[in-house]
Design a binder for these strands. Structure first.
Length: 561
RNA sequence: GCCUCCGUAGUUCAAUGGACAGAACACUGGACUUCUAAGCCAGUUAUGUAGGUUCGAUUCCUACCGGAGGCACCA
């Protein structure tokens, strides 16, 4: 709808012979200003040498002569805004769509026939799956779903560091602690990491182990390594299942050395990389003064993270030739990616154009940075279970069967956690305070789930909840119902959230929408009302928006709670 | 030192260069006792400082103050 209005204005500008500056078409903040507003007169007035208000009147006058059926009226307001009010006919069609095509309302086909690969989470085997990974996973999953809702084919990828110094530290610790499960491996890592700092001989042995891992020439070590890797990976799968996520491709750091090294050597000859102080480097500052030099092959001849990442770009492209490759990491890696992508630009410009790095903020504890090295770490599993405990207290007196109770408890806990991550713009840090960060009231995941539960409760109680076209029409005709006007914005909001990789737009919208529904629910008795059929149609449409919205964000939906 | 990001109510977050800067938590008061009260209604409180650009700046530019991250062989 937003695009339709934009085109309408563009045509009008053309007819009036007004040069079109960059204008916006946006949802109004207040429904008394209609449904959409444009600032076109404000931005163009100067070029035409008239007052904004006069130009607005002129444009609006022209628009009125050829209004499509979706628009009820056009008005000039304020300093020169032109406001558009949607017609009951349009609202009725949209409500009918939402009520009768629950699985597709909000989707679009703007990106049909495009292939997208999204890399996120990237936990390291042998180490904990901590709340930072939880953050990356939550954001990555929401973005993946949003992109898929545009009609694109989305594949999810996870890149895991199964070699490197951190693994050597874990193995060194494991030799002493003999870990059996993922959590004990996490402790073995912490032990190895602290001995590496404190003890010279431990440090030396860890470095020997590190080399042996690359060469795989020690059968005892190999057995320990293979066992630990398997335990970690299986453990990660149990977490993905709980979070409602999955991966189509797993890439391992151990497999990226070879393709990475080949590329670096090839492009050393072509002058992209160069030798400096006994190491091979890429001097990114030669192309962009804000970037810096990074090492690709160490003095020992080992590939660094940067080299493996380069190998990863090409391995992904080979595995799944995507039109767009998105990588989601924490923002502490911003400069690494800026340099790495600059190198890619000189190696394969086409692949560079397709690749996009997005970063999210850090989850920090009120006490400072979370570190798995010192053991000052909160694991994802601990957090989920802790939150579940609180949900369990709330649900204790409810009369649900034990297994349904358990299912609801898990779903509410996951939604509460995911909401706390997705509610704010991607990129900012989250100061993680357990008591304050996870909420069940007000702006929260459970608030959204609860609104859906209420809608479902009404629909189930109603004798018939089948939606007829005439019901949607009468629901839309009730001018007092701001809820319907809010509801039809859903597709625009999803589109924007997907285009800008910004799930929080959808979160904000859903929260306001749920609030509008709760207000309606408290004010209007639906069942038994003279308008019952129309109100049920509206409620049905509301349930669609809440369900689809939650699902797009990767939050579980429950029918009762 | 250099580079990047960020400073909005007591707190945690929104706001596409636009129309009175929105929520929630907390605090105070209220309604119903009717489809689930994890709910609804009402109230108090905010753009770090100083300039600039603009018809209009929380948003763009400059400086300063404050915070976070990064800056050659960790990832």
């Amino acid at each position: 709808m937003k695009e339709k209005i934009r085109h309408l204005i563009q045509n009008t500008l053309h007819d009036l012979n007004v040069s079109g500056a960059d204008f916006s078409v946006e949802h109004t903040a207040d429904f008394s200003h209609g449904d959409y507003a444009t600032n076109v007169a404000l931005v163009s007035a100067k070029a035409v040498k008239t007052s904004p208000h006069a130009l607005a009147e002129k444009i609006a006058g022209h628009l009125e002569t050829k209004l499509p059926s979706e628009i009820e009226k056009v008005e000039v307001a304020g300093a020169g805004f032109i406001n558009f009010t949607l017609s009951a006919a349009f609202l009725s069609v949209a409500l009918k769509n939402a009520a009768s095509s629950p699985n597709t309302f909000g989707n679009a086909t703007t990106h049909a026939n495009t292939k997208v690969i999204v890399e996120y989470t990237d936990p390291n085997p042998f180490k904990e799956f901590h709340i930072g990974h939880l953050m990356s996973n939550t954001i990555g999953e929401a973005i993946s779903r949003l992109i898929a809702s545009r009609g694109a084919e989305v594949k999810r990828a996870c890149y895991q560091g199964d070699v490197g110094l951190h693994v050597a530290k874990a193995l060194y610790g494991a030799k002493q602690a003999n870990p059996k499960n993922a959590s004990e491996w996490g402790k073995a890592y912490a032990l190895g990491a602290s001995l590496y700092e404190e003890n010279e001989s431990a440090k030396k042995e860890i470095e020997i182990i590190n080399k042996a891992i690359y060469e795989r020439n020690d059968s005892v070590l190999n057995a320990l390594y293979d066992g630990g890797r398997k335990v970690s990976l299986e453990y990660f799968e149990t977490i993905y299942k709980r979070l409602g996520t999955h991966f189509d491709f797993y890439f391992f750091e151990s497999e990226m050395s070879k393709p990475g090294l080949t590329l670096v050597r090839e492009f050393l000859k072509k002058g992209v990389f160069e030798e400096s102080n006994g190491v091979l480097v890429f001097k990114a500052e030669k192309y962009n003064t804000k970037l810096h030099t990074r090492v690709y092959i160490t003095s020992q001849g080992l590939p660094t993270y940067e080299t493996k990442e380069l190998g990863l770009h090409f391995t992904k492209a080979k595995t799944y030739p995507a039109d767009q490759s998105i990588i989601i990491t924490a923002n502490e890696q911003d400069s690494v990616y800026a340099v790495g992508l600059e190198a890619l630009r000189h190696i394969d410009p086409k692949l560079f154009e397709k690749t996009k790095h997005l970063s999210h903020g850090m989850l920090r504890l009120p006490t400072g940075k979370m570190s798995s090295r010192t053991g000052n770490v909160i694991t994802a599993e601990w957090l989920i279970d802790e939150v579940k405990g609180k949900v369990r207290e709330k649900i204790a007196e409810r009369d649900f069967a034990p297994d349904e109770k358990e299912k609801i408890t898990e779903a509410v806990a996951i939604a509460a956690i995911k909401y706390s991550i997705l509610r704010q713009a991607v990129g900012g840090d989250i100061i993680f305070d357990f008591e304050k960060s996870i909420s069940f009231e007000g702006d929260s995941g459970p608030y959204l789930q609860y609104a859906y539960v209420r809608a479902m409760s009404v629909l189930q109680k109603a004798q018939t909840a089948e939606v007829r076209g005439t019901d949607a029409e009468s629901a839309a005709a009730d001018g007092n119902i701001e809820l319907a006007r809010r509801l039809v914005r859903f597709p625009d909001v999803v589109a924007r959230a997907a285009e800008e990789y910004a799930p929080h737009y959808l979160v904000t919208y859903l929260t306001e929408f749920a609030s509008a529904f709760n207000n309606f629910y408290a004010r209007v008795k639906i069942i038994g009302s003279p308008d019952e059929a129309a109100l049920l149609a509206l409620t049905r449409a509301v349930s669609t928006v809440l369900k689809n919205g939650l699902t797009l964000l990767g939050m579980p939906v429950v029918e009762r709670m």
